[in-house]
């Protein structure tokens, strides 16, 4: 079941909790992991998460002037990649064009339910001198009730965020609503490993090692236990693809990364 009513219980990792509680508890998890989030991603994935995000942005094909929405990416990993790609396209177009009017850079909106994650993202952007002059905006918002107008976005990305949403279909419906006709959805998320033999190794690594890394690096074993469990509960590739179709998207496809550890699902509003 991917839609929760008020009295329903939903999964919080391997616990079942009241639907209303999930949002708050997820919020607590991410407040506590915000400052060590990037380090933890590197340790947990052996640096692979960088390649996965590179691949996401390659599939997205950013262009100068686009209006992009990145959801649940508070610390900015995907947003920064998208903005850099837009800037490269802007440079390319300006060099090639004889037109006197400047090519617009466009805008990346970073929307996250957790202000601490966004502040961390702002800090990193400042450090890397990204988004000076306004290419990045930081907005606290809920993926299930997005604070953006209908048909306002050229593309929507969500990386490792959708499994934390209480009602996945509500998030997908909102993604559809804010996209323009022709707009693209790209979702990078942990998925189900294709090969059975690898599965046991992966489970052993996840359930034994990751929470301990969390304990040592971030002093927070419980949050990382939650993260690992939430991965297990997320629907498999085909099921998630059908949820995306149910939200009205066309041309829905997915690509496995690293043997299915994660997958990028894409769809279009036509």
């Amino acid at each position: 079941m991917y839609t929760a009513g008020e009295d329903d219980t939903v999964s919080f990792g391997f616990q079942d909790i009241n639907a209303n509680e999930k949002k708050e508890r997820v919020g607590q998890v991410f407040s506590s992991v915000a400052s060590s989030y990037d380090t933890m991603n590197d340790l947990m994935s052996g640096g692979l998460h960088r390649l996965w995000k590179d691949r996401l942005v390659t599939r997205l094909q950013p262009f100068a002037g686009m209006c992009h929405l990145d959801v649940a990416g508070g610390t900015g990993d995907v947003a920064f990649r998208v903005l850099r790609a837009m800037a490269e396209d802007q440079t390319r177009q300006q060099e090639e064009s004889d037109a006197p009017t400047p090519v617009q850079l466009g805008q990346v909106h970073v929307c996250d339910i957790n202000p601490d994650m966004l502040r961390e993202g702002q800090r990193k952007a400042g450090q890397q001198r990204l988004g000076e002059g306004g290419g990045l905006s930081w907005i606290v918002g809920d993926a299930e009730q997005l604070p953006f107008q209908d048909n306002s976005m050229d593309a929507y990305t969500i990386a490792f965020g959708i499994r934390n949403v209480t009602n996945i279909d509500a998030a997908l419906d909102e993604a559809f609503r804010v996209l323009r006709k022709g707009g693209a959805l790209h979702c990078l998320e942990f998925s189900q490993l294709a090969l059975p033999g690898l599965r046991e190794l992966y489970d052993a690594y996840s359930f034994r090692v990751i929470p301990q890394i969390g304990r040592v690096v971030a002093n927070d074993e419980a949050s990382y236990q939650y993260l690992v469990e939430s991965i297990r509960r997320f629907p498999d590739q085909k099921t998630f693809a059908s949820l995306i179709r149910d939200a009205g998207f066309s041309g829905v496809s997915y690509e496995n990364l690293s043997g299915g550890i994660c997958a990028i699902h894409s769809g279009f509003r036509l």
Binding site: Q90, T91, Q104, L105, Q107, E132, G133, G134, G135
Partner: peptide, 9 residues
């Protein structure tokens, strides 16, 4: 280098 957009704060 990231070019500035024309949007100001």
């Amino acid at each position: 280098a990231v070019p500035y957009s024309t949007r100001g704060a």
